[in-house]
Structure formats: structure tokens, C-alpha cells
């Protein structure tokens, strides 16, 4: 089925797993319109595969976030400022 006929049909029929998958990122952004959001929720509530996938997908996002490093090297700012002062002075 072409992408155009898929989009045409999208407004009428129930979402497939593939449709729901396509909406995951927009769903997490809170960017789905009300109607699509309802249809997405309806599919997720009925489909154990997609419900479990959404759960693990959200965990993936949470895990990425948890890898954030807070500790840049302590001397980083001082070194950077020293470099910039020298360079800007040289160009004055």
C-alpha cells in the first residue's frame, strides 16, 4: 500500500501497530492532536505487543537520560577561559 493511500485511510480505520509505532515520538512529545491521541491510546490499550513496546521504548529514553554526565573535567572552564583570553588578546 502506498504511503498516500495509507494516510488517506488513516482517518477512518483503527490504527495498526505500524501506525502506532509511527506516532511514538510525537506521543512522548505531547504533540499528537486530540483525536489521534485518543486513537493511539485505544490501540495501545488493546494491543499487548504495542503496550509492552511503548513501555520499553519509554525505558530506553529514561536510560539515555540517566547516562548524562554531570562531571565535566574540573579544570575545563579555567582552561577554556585561558585559551580564549590569549587568543582574543593576540587578535586585539
Amino acid at each position: 500500500m502506498s504511503i498516500f493511500s495509507r494516510l488517506r485511510n488513516l482517518g477512518r480505520r483503527e490504527l495498526t501497530c505500524q501506525d502506532a509505532n509511527t506516532f511514538l515520538a510525537a506521543y512522548l512529545d505531547g504533540a499528537l492532536d486530540e483525536q489521534t491521541s485518543e486513537r493511539f491510546a485505544k490501540h495501545i490499550n488493546r494491543c499487548p505487543t504495542c503496550s509492552s513496546y511503548l513501555n520499553d521504548y519509554e525505558s530506553t529514553v529514561d536510560l539515555s537520560r540517566a547516562t548524562r554526565v554531570q562531571n565535566a573535567p574540573p579544570e575545563l572552564v579555567a582552561e577554556t577561559l585561558e585559551f580564549l583570553r590569549l587568543r582574543l588578546k593576540a587578535e586585539d
Binding site: 495498526t16 501497530c17 505500524q18 501506525d19 509505532n21 513496546y53 513501555n55 520499553d56 525505558s59
Partner: peptide, 16 residues
């Protein structure tokens, strides 16, 4: 990437 046929996932989907 997951693969779909007729809108359905093909192959096993691992559950964490």
C-alpha cells in the same frame, strides 16, 4: 528497526 507487514510487527518482540 522493527519490521511490519500489513501494519503488524513481524518476528518476535522482546519484552524487557
Amino acid at each position: 528497526q522493527p519490521q511490519f507487514v500489513d501494519g503488524h510487527v513481524t518476528g518476535p518482540v522482546a519484552q524487557w
